[in-house]
């Protein structure tokens, strides 16, 4: 008999095909469920496993209501702010995420934001969609060249290191701040700053790749933005809650920042629409991992975790141990 699975959100076709082959699942393509829908579906099907995304707030309350048949909950994401890991642990429920597989695509998108913000891609796109029709003078609408600039990275984990590797292709000087200094084979000549504050005045471009948590919530506040050099560029493809958005908006409208590139926001999807009125920002809707290849890999990794636990083995990517 195949194990029974519930999927709480729409998933890519290749992942659905594997679910059809390996699981007993009423909606293998996934469908968008509320917490109540999830509990009802798990209960009605005596499900063994739940595959979820950050769409579902997986807090203590929903964990307490899970039927006893559920042996694992696997999120299709690297971030797990939506999961109450302590509550899952207290119940003895393995919960897993999908690290590694989205590193390259997230780093690619981060670098796209760096290029798009520096080279004024939003404004240029606006010119085109309006039909262009007028040539620009040789001193008009100038952007910033990325090559050779100093790139500051907050958090040199897997994604931060992948961004640094791309930046080296542009001859950029890499600075980083991280809880500890990394060994030379991960540092690749980057300059370490124990103090984030001390790094900021040296960053022509700053990109965030820090873990989200109480110690980093709102870390980019007005004081931090003011320590960046005038005309700096700010990029965030990590988590929206790292940023005090009022402070960011003020820095963008005062001209202290030249531009920003943002993939994540404090309140998603109902993000602060004041950003949408600015010309010097490039905005994308949390698309760091949005490639066919990566979304498939994330789904497969979540299923690998589920299969491991249901086979009595330890999970591959446990969030508690």
């Amino acid at each position: 008999m195949k194990p029974r699975l519930i999927v709480s959100r729409q998933i890519p076709p290749a992942v659905a095909a594997r679910i059809r082959a390996e699981f007993d699942c009423p909606w293998p393509e996934g469908r968008d469920m509320t917490a109540d829908d999830v509990i009802a579906a798990l209960t009605q099907t005596n499900a063994d496993a739940l595959m979820l995304t950050s769409h579902l707030k997986f807090g203590a309350e929903i964990i307490a209501r899970l039927p006893a048949t559920v042996k694992i909950a696997a999120t299709c994401s690297v971030g797990f702010e939506h999961i109450d890991v302590a509550a899952a642990k207290a119940r003895g429920l393995p919960v897993t995420n999908t690290p590694d597989v989205l590193t390259d695509c997230t780093a690619d998108l981060t670098f796209m934001l760096i290029l798009a913000a520096c080279r004024r891609a939003h404004e240029y796109d606006g010119i085109m969609r309006a039909g262009w029709r007028r040539g620009y003078g040789l001193g008009e609408m100038l952007g910033l060249k990325v090559s050779g600039k100093r790139l500051g990275i907050l958090g040199l984990g897997r994604i931060g290191q992948a961004v640094a590797a791309r930046a080296r292709g542009f001859g950029m000087q890499i600075l980083y701040s991280h809880p500890r200094r990394l060994p030379p084979e991960q540092e690749h000549g980057a300059t370490y700053f124990a103090s984030f504050d001390e790094m900021l005045p040296h960053c022509d471009i700053l990109t965030l790749h820090a873990r989200s948590g109480p110690e980093t919530a709102g870390i980019m506040d007005a004081g931090k933005f003011s320590r960046l050099p005038k005309g700096a560029v700010f990029v965030n493809a990590a988590r929206g809650n790292l940023v005090d958005e009022d402070a960011l908006l003020a820095a963008l409208t005062s001209g202290h920042l030249f531009a920003a590139g943002l993939d994540v926001f404090n309140n998603e999807p109902a993000f602060d629409l004041r950003f949408a009125a600015l010309d010097n920002v490039f905005l994308v809707p949390h698309m760091g991992s949005a490639t066919v290849e990566t979304r498939n890999a994330m789904g497969m990794r979540a299923l690998d975790n589920i299969q491991a636990v249901l086979a009595g083995k330890p999970p591959i990517d446990p969030l508690w141990s």
């Binding site: 959100r9 729409q10 998933i11 890519p12 996934g30 968008d32 995304t53 950050s54 769409h55 299709c76 390259d104 695509c105 690619d108 998108l109 796209m112 798009a116 891609a121 939003h122 796109d125 998603e268 999807p269 109902a270 993000f271 629409l273 950003f275 949408a276 490039f282 905005l283 994308v284 809707p285 949390h286 698309m287 949005a290 490639t291 066919v292 290849e293 990566t294 979304r295 994330m298 789904g299």
Partner: peptide, 27 residues
């Protein structure tokens, strides 16, 4: 990575939420 589509969606205030199949581009 379909950035133009993503940008226009946000500027139009029409973002309805993250979903694993939305605006899937090519690696």
């Amino acid at each position: 990575r379909r950035a133009g589509e993503g940008e226009r969606l946000l500027r139009a205030g029409q973002w309805t939420g993250w979903c694993p199949t939305q605006l899937i581009g090519a690696a």
